[in-house]
């Protein structure tokens, strides 16, 4: 599967066994996300969004089908190689931020860099840059509990981009935020996408998100129910058309 796509899923099935029942979390999903896009996976709760994101991030394995990210097939990788692969290629953003509470903002952002062979000084430089990008350079020594939800999510985004990953995956990054913070975070993601050309795959059921993304993939009961351009893309098309 030699692909130029940032994300390439082919006939992906993920089945969970729960007691004697089988839950088809994803049922034969095929999508291709070109590089440097900001896309959203939307759908009702339980439709398989998180499952899909976990497969893309290499923290879950498909029951069948193939997953390639950044042109590299990860379907058959061993857990050890996969962990190293994640450290190099994936930036993760979670709904509840998942910062380590006993580490400061700086230390949280530094964590993924400990898996690289950067020296201390270089790590500091990278961490400071990442925190500057998310606008929290002045909160480096704060612990998560000393930050607001929106600030925590910014730190988490800094942690996701500090290694300069191939793609950033975000699972409901605005799900736990008030409207204002949610807009800020979405704006920040757009900036990352436009300034640094990061591919971002975001799971959300926040309807506001549509306005920020290039493409929306709709999932329903584990099946891909539709692929639509986001409003941003439509805006761009409209602009192109009028030009």
């Amino acid at each position: 599967m030699d692909s130029k796509f940032a994300v390439d899923l082919e006939h992906v099935v993920r089945t969970y066994k729960r007691d004697e029942f089988e839950v088809h979390a994803l049922d034969d999903v095929t999508i291709q996300v070109p590089e440097s896009r900001f896309v959203a996976i939307m759908g009702p709760s339980g439709s398989g969004k998180t499952t899909m994101l976990n497969l893309i991030a290499g923290i879950d394995h498909p029951t069948s089908g193939r997953v390639a990210v950044g042109g590299e097939e990860i379907t058959g990788m061993k857990e050890r190689d996969l962990a190293a692969w994640r450290a190099r290629h994936i930036g993760l953003v979670f709904q509840f931020y998942n910062l380590i509470p006993v580490l400061t903002a700086f230390e949280n952002v530094e964590l993924p860099l400990l898996l690289t062979n950067l020296g201390k000084a270089e790590r500091r430089e990278h961490v400071e840059t990442a925190l500057k990008v998310v606008g929290l350079a002045d909160r480096m020594d704060h612990y998560p509990r000393q930050l607001s939800g929106g600030q925590e999510q910014r730190v988490a985004i800094a942690r996701a981009i500090v290694t300069d990953p191939t793609i950033v995956v975000a699972d409901e990054p605005t799900g736990d935020l008030d409207a204002k913070s949610a807009e800020d975070i979405l704006g920040l993601m757009v900036d990352l996408n436009q300034q640094f050309h990061k591919t971002i795959v975001m799971v959300t059921h926040d309807p506001r998100a549509e306005r920020y993304v290039d493409t929306v993939y709709r999932l329903d009961k584990g099946v891909l129910a539709g692929v639509e351009p986001g409003k941003r893309a439509r805006g761009a098309e409209a602009a192109e058309a009028s030009a």
């Binding site: 923290i59 050890r80 962990a83 190293a84 994640r86 450290a87 380590i100 964590l111 898996l115």
Partner: peptide, 14 residues
């Protein structure tokens, strides 16, 4: 547990 999951997801080995 969540911290462990996060560390692992970030790429720390088992």
């Amino acid at each position: 547990t969540t911290e462990i999951g996060t560390l692992r997801a970030l790429g720390f080995s088992p």
